[in-house]
């Protein structure tokens, strides 16, 4: 599973070894933290109800990860590769279109 729109210069975390480090510990690719999966920290996942969604974008603006994106239909959804499940979007959603459900194996 690799995230969308990320260049592949840096390897994902599991494939990195010390041999991949540049001399002098220089990081050559800007923003390569987007290779790092924070989604596995999650204990609750947000479920977006498209019937209630008014496409306002309040979930997008208040997401500390910046992982909520607008899809082709204009609805907002969280990229679960990064979503840490904080629940701010569910708390702030005006129409209560987002609910948090426990993550199960």
């Amino acid at each position: 599973m690799t995230p969308k729109g990320v260049s592949q210069l840096t390897k994902p975390e599991g494939m990195l070894t010390w041999r991949d480090l540049e001399i002098g510990s220089i990081v050559v690719e800007p923003g390569n933290a987007s290779q790092y999966q924070t989604g596995d920290w999650r204990s609750e996942r947000p479920i977006f109800d498209t019937n209630k969604c008014i496409k306002c974008g309040i979930c997008y603006i208040f997401c500390p990860e910046g992982c909520v994106e607008q899809n082709a239909e204009g609805y907002f959804e969280a990229d679960l590769f990064y979503c840490k499940g904080c629940g701010i979007c569910a708390r702030e959603c005006w129409t209560k279109a987002i609910t948090m459900v426990p993550e199960e194996e």
Binding site: A33, S34, T38, W41, E65, G66, C67, D79, G87, I88
Partner: peptide, 12 residues
């Protein structure tokens, strides 16, 4: 996003 996702901040 100039501050890329995948950072290690605490939840919330």
């Amino acid at each position: 996003e100039n501050f890329a996702p995948g950072h290690r901040a605490c939840i919330g």
